[in-house]
Amino acid sequence: MTSDDVRHRREAGHFVRWALAQKIARDLSFPAVRWNGPSQAMDDAALWATARRLLHDDTLKPEDRLAGLLLLLYAQWPAAISRLTVDHIEETDGAVRLRLGTVPVDLPGPVAELALHQVAARRSHAVLARTDSPWLFPGGQPGRPISVWAMGERLRKLGIRLAETRSTALFQLATELPAAVLARTLGIDITVAVKWQRAAAGDWGAYAAEVSRRSAKAASGRENQPAAFNAQGDLQC
């Protein structure tokens, strides 16, 4: 915990805090490090290059492409991706939505196709295997989702650096969307969303007024919808 050569400091901290919360251990402490935003420039060019590869490279497994895009476009950790079920994906009136938080996300065409393909594959497998496993990314053990470690390894094999890529995705989203929308749609804590908004230097203090002005323009027939939203206000990436 104190050596300059220590490894897995972050993971050890999570374990200590979990052990205290479960009352397995007492009188333990672990130094916390305050996060003050990204420490280096975000490589959004690399992010979009990888996203395009996952969108169009048919030689990759569809489930791996979908998992990678959930990280690249929606800043989802492997832990969150591995816990998704087929019920998190909804298709209504020709639109495909993914529920990550309290407000569903509208999936763009190529991502929607991958999501529907994975749902169909999982349901077909469930019928053939006579199992009611709900997981979108099932693991090797019957009835269990893929492990966080295994999901992380699959993403790394795609050339994705997990922490760096998620930071880049959150940074990009925080420059375009208010913290409240990030929290509702991505399923992250509002305090985390606010920190990323500040790190991205996004000023959303006048957001409500801007929406009001755009709504007024809509009445006169002009284009008013922000690029990141559809008509219902759902996040689109």
Rank of each mutant, 00 (worst) to 15 (best):
167 S>N: 13
143 G>D: 05
192 V>W: 15
108 P>R: 00
138 P>R: 04
63 E>W: 15
181 V>Q: 14
226 P>G: 03
126 A>P: 07
150 A>Y: 03
167 S>M: 10
234 D>F: 15
110 P>Q: 03
167 S>T: 00
185 T>I: 01
76 Q>Y: 10
87 D>R: 09
13 G>I: 10
234 D>W: 15
30 F>P: 07
134 P>H: 02
207 Y>H: 15
221 G>S: 06
29 S>L: 03
44 D>T: 14
233 G>Q: 05
180 A>F: 10
141 Q>L: 05
1 M>R: 11
209 A>I: 04
54 L>E: 08
36 N>K: 00
66 L>T: 01
50 T>H: 01
187 G>Q: 04
209 A>T: 05
95 A>G: 12
33 V>N: 13
2 T>L: 12
161 R>Y: 02
178 P>N: 05
184 R>A: 15
94 G>N: 04
144 R>E: 11
232 Q>S: 12
187 G>K: 06
103 V>L: 05
199 A>Q: 07
80 A>Y: 00
159 G>P: 04
47 L>R: 14
222 R>T: 09
211 V>E: 07
156 R>L: 15
55 L>G: 07
59 T>Q: 13
21 A>W: 10
133 S>N: 05
225 Q>W: 11
168 T>Q: 02
66 L>F: 11
60 L>N: 06
168 T>K: 01
29 S>R: 11
114 L>Q: 03
207 Y>V: 13
155 L>C: 04
20 L>I: 09
205 G>W: 01
20 L>P: 12
132 D>T: 15
8 H>E: 08
191 T>W: 13
52 R>D: 15
142 P>C: 07
200 A>S: 02
168 T>M: 00
162 L>M: 03
69 L>I: 04
178 P>M: 04
132 D>R: 14
156 R>K: 14
120 A>W: 15
81 I>R: 13
104 P>D: 14
84 L>Q: 07
7 R>F: 02
47 L>K: 11
174 A>V: 05
194 V>E: 15
203 D>I: 08
3 S>R: 14
82 S>Q: 09
220 S>F: 06
31 P>K: 03
25 A>N: 03
2 T>K: 11
195 K>R: 14
34 R>P: 08
190 I>E: 07
53 R>I: 01
183 A>S: 12
139 G>E: 10
167 S>C: 12
135 W>H: 06
34 R>Y: 12
111 V>C: 00
145 P>K: 07
34 R>N: 10
73 L>I: 08
192 V>C: 13
154 R>Q: 04
170 L>T: 05
163 A>F: 14
112 A>T: 00
115 A>N: 01
110 P>N: 08
118 Q>G: 10
24 I>Q: 05
48 W>R: 13
218 A>K: 06
76 Q>W: 07
74 Y>K: 01
78 P>S: 08
2 T>Y: 07
185 T>E: 06
177 L>A: 11
95 A>C: 13
233 G>T: 06
99 R>I: 11
172 Q>G: 13
77 W>A: 14
209 A>V: 03
118 Q>S: 06
164 E>P: 07
164 E>C: 08
43 D>V: 13
173 L>A: 10
162 L>Q: 02
83 R>F: 07
67 A>L: 04
173 L>G: 02
23 K>F: 09
180 A>R: 11
150 A>R: 05
186 L>R: 00
140 G>L: 15
47 L>V: 00
87 D>I: 03
14 H>W: 13
122 R>T: 12
68 G>T: 09
